[in-house]
Write a protein that binds this DNA or RNA. Structure first.
Lengths: 143, 143
DNA sequence: TGAATTTAAGATAAAATTATCTTAAAATTT
DNA sequence: AAATTTTAAGATAATTTTATCTTAAATTCA
């Protein structure tokens, strides 16, 4: 569905949003330790988000990463697109290069509808997620 | 989402159902050639369906594979389960081993709903697909 | 200034998936 | 019986993803 890299990145982004408070940057080491992720793998993945302009980074003590964009403008779909690419939301489920209403695969219609819903599922901002957590709308959440 | 192996297998199964007519077996070579798939890779994957009791096989000239079960009892979900396993329909989208209503990940509720719909999308029999094609309900289909 | 900390970048390796080949076994055909 | 065809099984390799390490560059702190 989505890669481990994307899963880790989504969790990291939510972690940053929840725990940065008024810090300038959150160190990747801290994120990796608290989420029990590989520092190496996470570093590489977050670097992609930095290069994509979603996060910014800073070196040295007090360094780390933080959001470059506003939380309301960072959606899970953006993270997935940067890390995994957009094919999940664009491609034929059976792998046909050209698959359309005029020339469909066996489950084209079902999948066209479904991937739209998948897109909508991931079309949620980090701000919304954090608000839901902080407001108690989501309880006992795993990060 | 689903692996190449699962995609190939689904297409092969639909091919067999559509083109076996009154033949005892359909050769894997024929399927691979017509679907432009690797004979080697397809053989391995279909063998899994044979071992799972969905298909049966026969060696030698006139040999090949065919359905062991009735078409109405073979659903895409069965093929995916045999080839890829069932984790897509059972696991947390963010990879948490335990993710529940009481202890949810950030998108647990959305995903719980969505994976149910995904399941339903694949909960379609080969018989239904073939009927839709033969009755003209699906036109210009890619196999 | 020098030591320590942290990300950046690239090398290397492990694991999983996909792809290919070889040999064996079973069945048919000649 | 011998040659041919086809699946079965296992070996090998290529590719992609995940994991780890090393060195460099930037920054802070003493």
């Amino acid at each position: 569905m989505i890669t481990e890299a994307a899963k880790d990145s989504i969790r990291a982004v939510i972690y940053i949003a929840l725990y940065r408070e008024d810090r300038e940057f959150v160190s990747i080491k801290e994120i990796a330790q608290n989420l029990k992720l590989s520092f190496y793998f996470l570093s590489k993945n977050l670097l992609k988000l930095v290069k994509a302009g979603i996060l910014e980074s800073f070196r040295g003590p007090k360094g780390g990463v933080n959001f470059k964009k506003n939380l309301k403008d960072v959606k899970l779909i953006d993270i997935i697109s940067v890390i995994d690419g957009t094919s999940l939301f664009e491609s034929c489920i059976l792998g046909f290069k050209e698959c359309s209403d005029a020339n469909p695969c066996a489950i084209h219609n079902k999948w066209a509808e479904e991937r739209k819903k998948l897109y909508e599922m991931f079309d949620i901002s980090v701000e919304k997620i954090v608000d839901d957590i902080k407001s108690g709308k989501i309880k006992n959440i795993k990060i």
